[in-house]
Every structure is written in structure tokens, then in C-alpha cells.
Amino acid sequence: MSKSYKSKKILVKRRYQILAAILFLLALGLVLLPKYKENEGIDPELFVKNALSTERYISTDVLADRLINQDPTVLLIDTRSEDEFNEFSLPDAVNIPVKDFFNENLNPFLDQNVFDVILFSNDNFYANEAWMLGNRLGYTNLYILKGGLNEWFSTIIDPKYPDETMPREAFELYSFRKAAGMYFGVGEAESKTEEKPVQKKKVVTVPKKKKRAPEGGC
């Protein structure tokens, strides 16, 4: 009895040893696993998905509306060169040329989740470049002003008067843009061909009722 028990014990011991050896080998295998390159930022698949979506574009009308309403979450970033920025830019914009994207003083403007960062340039191109760089690194809250400053000037600053046959919405949009333009510093006057309809205020005065003289009596 005792002998067989002893042999079993040895067998168990051997089993332990084999198990330990296998585990040890596996651990070594983990060390020898082929190195693979890890992505900096997001996956290429997600990158393409984001890039194909048009969610990042913000129209000039929406931006104008937000600026006029003093939206505190809007942060305008001018991605053009410094010279162009000094010449003209949108109100309260911060100048971050694309080449300064990783500038340690300026990058915190882009990599945060407090403000809605709206990138713009003359067109979409530079803004799009900056957006792509941010997109890869997983920055949230980056948007692009659709059409850039060119679009801003052709819609907000100098809107085209709609044709007579256009729907009412076109006229409403026009008057919104005209009013927005005034907010951003355009004179109230129209060019000669355009006549701005003057809205007349209607004032209805309610005449005071005279007190009736007491009736009857002699």
C-alpha cells in the first residue's frame, strides 16, 4: 500500500514538473512574440471613416449665428500664415499656421475638449490638413469652416440678393446674412442695385376712452 502510494507521489511530482516546464516555455514564447508596430493615434480604418464623413464642416451661417449669440464655446483658429492673419482675420481668432501644429504653446488650443475649435483658412485646404493631423491623433472637437474665408465673404459680408422667383426662405436667409454682416462691421447701406425693404413699424394707438358723462339728469 505504502509503496504504491509513494510511486504515485513521484508520478504527481513529475506531472508538476511537466506542467511547470510547459508554462515556462509559454512564458518564453511571449517574450519572443514578433514585435508589431503599434499605431500612434487611431487606426487607419477609423481615420478614413472620419475623413469621409462631412460632419466636420460647419457652414458660415451657423458660425455667424453662434458668434452673434456670443457662444462661449467657439474658438476660432486661423490656419493661414502670420502675414495673412495680421492683414485680416475673423474676430477673436487665434493664429496657428499648419506648420506650428505641434508648437507646444499652441497645440493645447487644439488638443482639448472644452471649446469647439473651428479651423479656417482662405479655402478648406489648410484647415483640412490641420484637421487631418488632429483626426489621426484623436483630437475631438475639431471643425472646419466650410469654404473658409472665401465663403465667409461671399455669404456673410457680401451676400447676393436672391432672385424674385426664389422661395421665401432665400429672402429670409438673405436678410439674416445682411444683418449678420452688419454685426461683423459692414455698413448698413446696400449697393445701388439692391434695395433693402424698409420695415415699417406699425404702431397702433388705442385712443383713450373718454369717460362717459353721467347720463340722465336734467
Partner: peptide, 20 residues
């Protein structure tokens, strides 16, 4: 590419002077 449609600064100036 990235060509401004008008000279923005000039355009704004003229737009402002139209006001007065």
C-alpha cells in the same frame, strides 16, 4: 489652391466706409 477671392482687408475697409 487657397487663393483669396478678394483682398479681405481692403474689402472690409470699403464695406466699412460705405457705412459713413
Amino acid at each position: 489652391l487657397e487663393k483669396p477671392r478678394v483682398n479681405f482687408a481692403q474689402f472690409m475697409d470699403s464695406a466699412k466706409s460705405a457705412k459713413s
